[in-house]
Computed example of a mutant assay.
Amino acid sequence: MGHDVIVVGLGGMGSASAHRLAAGGLRVLGLDRHPPAHDQGSSHGGSRITRQAYFEDPAYVPLLRRAGELWDAVAEESGRHLVDWSGGVMVGRPDGPTISGSLASARYWGLEHELLDAGQIHTRYPTLRPSDADVALVERRAGSVNPEESVRAHLDLAGRYGADLRHGETVLDWTATDAGVRVRTERATHEADRLVLAPGAWAPDLLADLGVPMQIERYVQFWFAPSDPAAFAGHPVYIWEGPGGRQFYGFGLGGDGTVKVAFFRGGDVCDPASIDRTVHPGEVEEIRAFAAPHVPGAVAEFVRAKTCMYTCTPDHHFVIAPHPAHPAVTVACGFSGHGFKFVPVVGEIVADLVTAGSTSHPIDLFDPARFSARSTPAHSTHFGEHVA
Rank of each mutant, 00 (worst) to 15 (best):
G25I: 04
L26C: 13
L26V: 09
R27V: 14
V28D: 13
V28S: 11
V28F: 07
V28E: 13
G30W: 02
G30M: 02
D32P: 15
R33D: 04
R33V: 04
H34T: 04
H34Q: 14
P35W: 08
P36R: 09
P36S: 09
P36A: 11
A37F: 13
H38V: 14
H38Q: 14
D39F: 01
D39T: 14
Q40S: 13
G41W: 06
G41N: 11
S42H: 13
S42D: 15
S42N: 15
S43V: 08
S47T: 10
R48H: 04
R48V: 06
I49D: 01
T50E: 02
R51M: 02
Q52C: 00
Q52E: 02
A53K: 01
Y54L: 00
E56K: 06
D57P: 05
D57H: 13
D57T: 12
P58F: 04
A59W: 14
A59P: 04
Y60P: 10
V61A: 02
V61D: 00
P62F: 01
L63E: 07
L64R: 09
R65H: 05
R66H: 12
R66M: 05
R66K: 14
A67V: 09
G68D: 03
G68P: 00
W71L: 08
W71H: 07
A73R: 15
V74R: 14
V74F: 13
V74D: 13
V74K: 12
A75F: 07
A75L: 05
E76M: 07
E76K: 15
E77W: 10
S78N: 05
G79L: 07
G79D: 08
H81Q: 08
H81K: 09
L82R: 06
L82P: 12
L82T: 11
L82W: 09
